[in-house]
Structure formats: C-alpha cells, structure tokens
Design a protein around this nucleic acid. Structure first.
Lengths: 151, 151
DNA sequence: CCAACGAGGAGAATAATATTCTCTAAAAAG
DNA sequence: CTTTTTAGAGAATATTATTCTCCTCGTTGG
C-alpha cells in the first residue's frame, strides 16, 4: 500500500518536514503535482498524522526527564480513568498502561527535580486511585527521537 | 529572550509545522518578513531544532511499545559506551542513563512481542557489559507526544 | 539632553513554490 | 477486449517565500 517512492517521500519529511514540495519532487524524480497528490493522500488516509517543530528542551526549562511508575487501585472510582487524568497534565508527555503492575508508566519533563517533586505531590498523588509512585530520574540521554523506523 | 510573539509562533508550529509563513504572520499580526526573520533566528540559535513529520505507527508495524531496563557492569570494556551502542539500534527510540540502577532505560518500538524478543536476544543481550534486562510492555497508550509544554 | 547606533519591523518588488487542471498512459476491473 | 480507474506529466495560475530598502523606536555613550 505504501510503495518505494512514498517511502522516499516520508523519509525526506522525517528529516526536514518543512522542505518545499518541489524539492521533494526533485529528489524522488516525480512531478511536483504527483508528489503533492501522494502527500495529500497519505494525510487523508492517516499515514501522515501531522507535522511538528522540534524544540530544544533546554531553552524552555525542560531538561529533566523522569519516568514514573504509578501503582493504582484496581477498581478506581473518581471522574474519568486515571490514564485520562494523567494525560491532561502538560508536563507529562507519555502515559502508558502497562502489563504486570496494575498501573501506568509515565514520562515527565520538568525544569529540575524540584518541579518534579511538585508534580508528584500536587498533580499525581492527588489523583483518586493512585496508591504509590516510583520515579526513575534520567541522568543523561543518549538518544531521544519519535522517528519511526521505516525500511 | 523569547518574547510573547515568538512563543505564539512556536505554538503554531507545534501544531502545524508545515503551515505557510504568511499564514503565521496573519495569526500573530506581523509582516511575513518579520516572522521569517524570527524563525530564522530561532533556527540559528538552536531554539528550533528541526521539523518532522508525525507518522502513524500502526501503518508501519510499530505498534508495540516497550520499556527496557538494562543493567550493566560498572566498568564495561567493549567498543564505545553501551549507551552509544544502544542508540544505534533503529527500533530503540530513547536511551537514557538512569540514576540508582547502574544502567539504562530504553524505549523500543516493534511490530509485536515476537520482534521484541528478537531485539532483546539478538541486539541487546549481545552487547558487552549488559548483565540483565527487565522489560515492561505497554498494553495501551493514553498519550504520547514529544511536544514540549511552553507557557 | 542629545546624537549615534542597532534591532526589528513594514511594505513592495522579485523569485520561488504550491496548486489546479487538462491530457495521457497504463493498470485493473468487468 | 472494452471500460474504468489510477497516477503522473506539464502548463497555467495562485500563493507564498525571500530580499531589500526605508523607517521607527529604544538604547547607549558622550
């Protein structure tokens, strides 16, 4: 369903999403109109979900990455699921329901461990059904990408 | 250093990085040339790191997210650091050196648990200095974004 | 207090790109 | 075999990007 040329196009967009269409067409050897049509189609069918800017976290006081395991009561009451409540917190970038621990794994970005503490105390611990948390703080990041490997 | 207008611009780009410049300029109320200059400057100073396309993982057989804790020997020999070797594996999107466990936390994307097993056995366990791994598989994802919260 | 300087922005001119549309070829369907 | 559908080329047109000049305003140094 996605042929070699579309793969080429996507690879180019993974690197430089703001590249002009005409430049993409040059690189893949199709007419601009053809490339445009392919991209439109991939946007429409959901292969392409959107385009985003990649910002430098340090410039926005978001250098501290932490992973938080959250243990929950099995039958939580409260409004909405715990997952949704966690997802609503801006500092939290990822919320996963995980196997084997009755709980969630969450990725947070804060300025420092100070703010991390605030987050844990004021935003997470206060959610109905949360029993305990275990936090893993990141000391150094070797790689951090959302790029999906495509052949 | 980053004023309110630049924030506006960045917020717009976080949503739709391929939006035309002239449209941004309309939304923030500056001339296109002024917006262009601001964006160029932010690219140059590293505030903006790049632009990327967001693809649908399911369309590329990358639905299985897993987090892998990797315990390592303290003084590893081998070529390069373990972190760099992990980072070189395409299925691995994140490699973090973490506090308190002499090891790494790694995020992997595979088609299924089958492939996850392959990854663990053939690519991770074979790295010199790796003592043990503990894998957390994700059952459901509520939120997954790389967007940095900006005020 | 005033002049020189510099940063940023407006606006117009020009260059480049995006988009649309028509035509055609080739593949798929019947 | 036709018919239909799909995808691409290429040209015309619309829109956008980029450059450049001029201007304003805030800052600095005298």
């Amino acid at each position: 369903m996605i042929d070699e040329i579309s793969m080429e196009i996507l690879k180019i967009l993974q690197d430089k999403a703001r590249i002009p269409n005409v430049e993409v067409s040059r690189q893949v050897g199709l007419a601009p109109s053809a490339v445009l049509e392919r991209i439109r189609k991939m946007e429409k069918t959901g292969i392409i979900d959107g385009y985003e800017v990649r910002l430098n976290p340090e410039r926005f006081s978001r250098s501290q990455i932490s992973y938080i395991h959250i243990t929950t009561r099995l039958h939580s009451s409260g409004k909405g699921t715990i997952g949704d409540q966690l997802a609503a917190i801006p500092e939290i970038q990822e919320v996963h329901f995980i196997a084997g621990e009755d709980g969630y794994l969450v990725k947070a970005r804060t300025a420092n461990t100070e703010e991390l503490g605030d987050l844990l105390r004021n935003q997470i611990a206060t959610i109905e059904g949360v029993i305990a948390t275990r936090t893993t703080t990141v000391l150094h990041t070797y790689k951090e990408t959302s790029r999906i490997p495509i052949r």
